[in-house]
Amino acid sequence: MAKEVKLFGWYGSPVSRRVEFALKLKGVEYEYIEEDLSNKSDLLLKYNPVHKKIPVLVHNGKPIAESLVIIEYIDETWKHNPILPQHPYERALARFWAKFYDDKCQPALWKSIWSKGEEREEAIKEAYEHLNTLENELKDKKFFGGQDIGLVDIAANFIGFWLGLFQEVSGLELLTEEKFPKLYKWSQDYVTHSVIKEKLPSRDRMIAYISARFEASSK
């Protein structure tokens, strides 16, 4: 029931969308509560007093924070349409690659986008290395989870959708078909997947938001 499951998130947040993708893949009804990140609600601060950030899932009055933790909770609570593999070793590998993305790949991508000068050059070099690692891990699979979307696909959703928008606005080229053909094809398959496509934010709205951020940062 929607009343039993609430999600505190923000429209343009990749980590918030991770949870929405997981809930949608599972077919779980939920109530979505949009947060103003510049003026966070008392409820959000109550439910996530440690990090004070989105996303937060509240199930039967009990809050869970951190997107990857939330996704595992969702997967364990609603058993159908599994997001993580069933075999312990495969589950461990999925956790490893999701953590690799969060700890290594995402920070390098973010720094590539927003830093300048030598720092940016170093960040781009590092980002290429991590993207190449993901390219090699993808092998000949459609998704990191095989034929179906799994934990690593959801974790890497910034690459699937948001990175292309940042590249378009900034002129930076990190993920291209020439450099990373497998990962590029994965990104195309990812954003056209019926469940993911339905829950992606408006492209035009995100382009406007990103453009405004770049304009503000250049002043």
Rank of each mutant, 00 (worst) to 15 (best):
K3E: 14
V5L: 06
K6A: 03
F8Y: 15
G9V: 07
S13C: 06
R17W: 03
R17T: 08
R17V: 09
E20T: 11
L23A: 06
L23T: 09
K24A: 14
V28P: 01
E29N: 15
E31W: 14
Y32S: 03
E35A: 02
D36V: 05
D36M: 03
L37K: 07
S38I: 07
N39A: 06
N39I: 03
S41E: 05
D42Q: 11
L45F: 10
L45P: 11
K46T: 13
H51L: 11
K52A: 07
K53D: 11
L57W: 02
L57Y: 01
V58T: 07
G61A: 12
P63T: 11
I64Y: 08
E66W: 11
L68C: 05
Y73W: 13
Y73N: 14
I74V: 11
I74R: 04
H80A: 14
P82M: 14
I83A: 09
I83P: 00
L84Y: 09
Q86V: 13
Q86A: 12
H87Q: 06
E90V: 06
K99A: 12
K104W: 04
Q106I: 10
I113W: 00
W114K: 11
S115K: 12
S115H: 11
G117R: 15
E118H: 12
E121T: 14
I124E: 03
K125V: 01
E129N: 10
L134D: 01
E137H: 13
K139M: 05
D140R: 13
D140T: 15
G145Y: 08
G146M: 12
D148P: 12
L151M: 15
V152Y: 01
V152D: 00
D153Q: 04
A155K: 02
N157V: 02
F161S: 01
G164K: 02
L165F: 01
L165D: 00
Q167N: 05
E168N: 09
V169H: 00
L172N: 05
E173T: 09
T176M: 10
T176P: 04
E177N: 10
K182D: 11
K185C: 08
W186N: 00
V195D: 07
V195N: 06
E198K: 15
K199Q: 15
S202E: 05
R213Y: 00
